[in-house]
C-alpha cells in the first residue's frame, strides 16, 4: 500500500466527503419519502372524511324529506279527514236530538277530535316546520320557544343579534341549526331540571355564533352519557354536515352551556 503513488490522506478526505454526501442524500430522500407518504395518507384520510360527510349529508337530506312527506300527509290527509269527521258529527241530528245524553256525547267527541286535530298539527309542524321554510331560522326558533314558554315547562330568553344573516341562511344550514337547538331544548326539558334557558345569536367575521345555556344541573362534556347519547350524536352529525364546530363548557356543577360556531361562506 505504501508503494502506490496515491496520497493516503487525500484518499481519506475524499472517502469522508463521499460518505458524508451519501449519508446526507440518504437522509434527505428518506425525509422526503416519509413526508410524502404522510401527505398522501392525510389526503386519503381527508377524502374518506369527505366521503363520510357526503353520506351523512345524504342520510340527513333523505331523513328531512321523509319527515316533510309524513308531516304533509298527516296535515293534509289525517287532518282533513278528522275535520270532516267533526263536521259530520255536528251535522248529524237523530230523532230525539235534544236528548241530554246525546248532547254530552257530541260535546265530548268534538273535544277529543279538537285535541286530535291540535296534536296532528303539532306533530306535522315538528316533523316539518313550515315556518323554517318560509320565514327562516329566527322565526322558527321563536315560534318553538313561544310554544315551550307557553307550556310553562321552561322560560327561554332569545337574543338575536344576527337577524339579517339568519334570514339569508341556506335551508340545509338553517334546518340543521334548528334541529340542533330543538335537541338542546329537548335535553334541557327532559334531563336538566332547568327553569331558564338562553339562546344568543351573534355574528363575527363571517361566522355565526350560537350560545346556548341553561340553569339546570349540567353535565360533564366528556362523560359517557354525553358522548354515547343519541341526542348529542345527532347534534354532532348535524353540525359536522354543515362544517360547524361546537364546544361544551367545562362541567362546573351548575348549568349546561354550549357554543356553536358555524361558517357562513
Amino acid at each position: 500500500m505504501q508503494n502506490t503513488p496515491d496520497n493516503i490522506y487525500i484518499l481519506v478526505l475524499l472517502g469522508m466527503t463521499g460518505t458524508f454526501l451519501l449519508v446526507v442524500s440518504f437522509i434527505f430522500f428518506s425525509v422526503r419519502n416519509q413526508n410524502r407518504l404522510l401527505k398522501q395518507r392525510q389526503k386519503f384520510q381527508q377524502a374518506q372524511i369527505e366521503h363520510q360527510k357526503e353520506l351523512l349529508g345524504a342520510v340527513i337530506e333523505s331523513q328531512e324529506a321523509e319527515r316533510k312527506r309524513i308531516g304533509q300527509d298527516l296535515h293534509d290527509d289525517v287532518g282533513t279527514t278528522i275535520s270532516g269527521l267533526r263536521l259530520l258529527i255536528e251535522m248529524f241530528k237523530p230523532t230525539g236530538g235534544d236528548d241530554k245524553n246525546y248532547q254530552d256525547f257530541t260535546q265530548s267527541t268534538k273535544t277529543i277530535i279538537d285535541k286530535i286535530v291540535k296534536d296532528v298539527r303539532n306533530i306535522s309542524h315538528n316533523l316539518s316546520p313550515t315556518t323554517l321554510r318560509y320565514y327562516g331560522l329566527a322565526a322558527a326558533v321563536t315560534e318553538h320557544c313561544t310554544i315551550i314558554n307557553q307550556s310553562g315547562k321552561l322560560q327561554i330568553a332569545l337574543v338575536n343579534n344576527a337577524e339579517k344573516t339568519l334570514e339569508e341562511l341556506p335551508l340545509p344550514t338553517s334546518t340543521a341549526l334548528y334541529r340542533v337547538l330543538e335537541e338542546l331544548l329537548n335535553n334541557t326539558i327532559k334531563h336538566s331540571g332547568a327553569s331558564k334557558a338562553n339562546i344568543d345569536f351573534n355574528i363575527t367575521d363571517y361566522k355565526l355564533y350560537i350560545d346556548y345555556a341553561d340553569n339546570g344541573k349540567g353535565v360533564s362534556a366528556d362523560s359517557a352519557s354525553v358522548k354515547k347519547g343519541m341526542g348529542m350524536q345527532n347534534i354532532e352529525s348535524r353540525l359536522l354536515n354543515i362544517n360547524a364546530i361546537y364546544a361544551i363548557s367545562p362541567y362546573s356543577g351548575k348549568g349546561f352551556s354550549i357554543k356553536i360556531e358555524c361558517p357562513l361562506a
Partner: peptide
C-alpha cells in the same frame, strides 16, 4: 405517520449516522 422533523429521535439518529459514517474512513 408523523412529520419527520417533529420526531426528536430522527434528529439524534441523523447526527449519529452522519458522524459515524463520515468519520469511518478516518
Amino acid at each position: 405517520e408523523q412529520n419527520w422533523g417533529d420526531n426528536m429521535y430522527n434528529w439524534i439518529n441523523t447526527g449519529i449516522l452522519l458522524y459515524l459514517a463520515s468519520s469511518l474512513f478516518m
